[in-house]
Design a protein around this nucleic acid. Structure first.
Lengths: 229, 229
DNA sequence: TTATGTTAGTGTCAAAGTAACACAAACAAT
DNA sequence: ATTGTTTGTGTTACTTTGACACTAACATAA
């Protein structure tokens, strides 16, 4: 096929889909894997819960767009972001064609005071295993993100962005158990996780808890970031 | 941010990037992992080699677009296709903004008579480890596709679409060796690959070769297809 | 017909990794 | 001082992986 030629900045030779990003932001909250959703304030799906996201601007990359939309709609900062998948079914948006570049993000739990968003009526965390019906194809997107998260647990450092900078092995094990949905033997977990050399002792110990203090660990600095992780 | 409202079919409230697909089609040819490239007949990068691909139409999904463009530009049919990654750097195309949904495809080697493409001067197979300089960011895309292919070897059936429907264990082992770049022990390979139960005996044997005939195997039918595989 | 070249097909053993298992120590709260 | 809770630690059986060599069956060439 022939290429649409650029004439000035716009190029209307061919119709184009709109391009948006959506973000599946996970955290671990109250012992459950949770995802951040916004209540839509506009049609379509007004009043439904949906993923945060919005339209791509011409001067930003998809990743930048995802970060900007998250900030605008929820005020949350993330500790990890990667592209998940692009959803491009012709009729996934009932209004007109919108291609969504879905992203996958993580943040450690803290009592995020969720900002009232511009065009969102509300923003809240939901337990991933107890989600309401979502707008558009957002249930599919969340499902794929959960798969990806579980799959990456065992060959990456993906659990670390869900914890604060310093954490105990007990807390890390909880993250693994919650995401995989299976109990893990404490001694085996500690042996294996330390053998990977992704975390190191800080020398400090936790205090203030009603039990024996635990060694605090941190992620070892890795340096480079690559496509997809 | 507010949403662009649809007025009729077009929606010009916001500037939009063009959306295209590119396809990294691999085959095993002459003992080497090879990728299909076209020689660009138009500017920019006229005369350079590039991935096959083209612009998304409003009535087709990204996957359909990838298949259509492959057919149009090269006449090749594929045995496997999945989305790879969406490349959206602001200036990845020097003309104007083009977002590319890159795909990853496989086909068994056969003496494909490569169709002279509409807007491609030529189409040829290249050894992946001896590629020319490519147009746009296509070298990055091929690199990512090679990573993905190697990574999936050991937890998926990704090698099978590179072979004809019936194949010998020797041929399958060659695929693994070529993609991983490492020699594999024949006995261990056979034990492990059969234990996965992804392939089964056909009962038939190869013939016509100047050596002992080998059992022919085929992929066991799996049924469902899922996101990303 | 025989010899040669080439790939198919097969089992054992050592090493490494994984999974199951229990109890004392250190703190806060009562 | 007692209770409740989490930390921290080692050994053993089991499973998986990796190394290793020879005979069988065909086509081809001598």
């Amino acid at each position: 096929m022939s290429l649409p030629e650029a004439s000035g900045r716009f190029c209307y030779d061919y119709e184009r889909p709109s391009v948006a990003t959506d973000i599946v932001l996970f955290t671990i909250r109250e012992g459950a894997l949770s995802v951040l959703l916004i209540e839509r304030g506009e049609h379509p799906f007004k009043g439904s819960w949906a993923l945060p996201g919005g339209f791509l601007r011409m001067d930003e990359s998809p990743e930048q767009c995802a970060l900007r939309e998250l900030e605008e709609e929820t005020g949350v900062e993330v500790s990890y972001l990667e592209q998940l998948y692009s959803f491009g079914a012709v009729r996934r948006d009932p209004r007109y064609r919108v291609l969504s570049i879905a992203h996958f993000a993580l943040t450690p739990w803290q009592d995020h005071s969720l900002k009232a968003a511009t065009d969102a009526a509300d923003a809240r965390w939901f337990d991933c295993h107890n989600l309401p019906k979502l707008a558009f194809d957002h249930s599919d997107i969340v499902g794929l993100a959960m798969q990806r998260l579980a799959a990456k647990l065992n060959y990456s450092t993906i659990a670390l962005p869900l914890l604060p900078k310093e954490f105990t092995l007990g807390a890390l094990q909880q993250v693994y158990e919650i995401i995989s949905g299976k109990p893990i033997d404490k001694r085996n977990f500690r042996k294996q996780i330390l053998a990977r050399k992704h975390i190191e002792e800080t020398g400090k110990k936790s205090k203030g808890d009603a039990h024996r203090p635990a060694m605090l660990y941190r992620a070892v600095d890795v340096g480079k970031v690559v496509y997809e992780g």
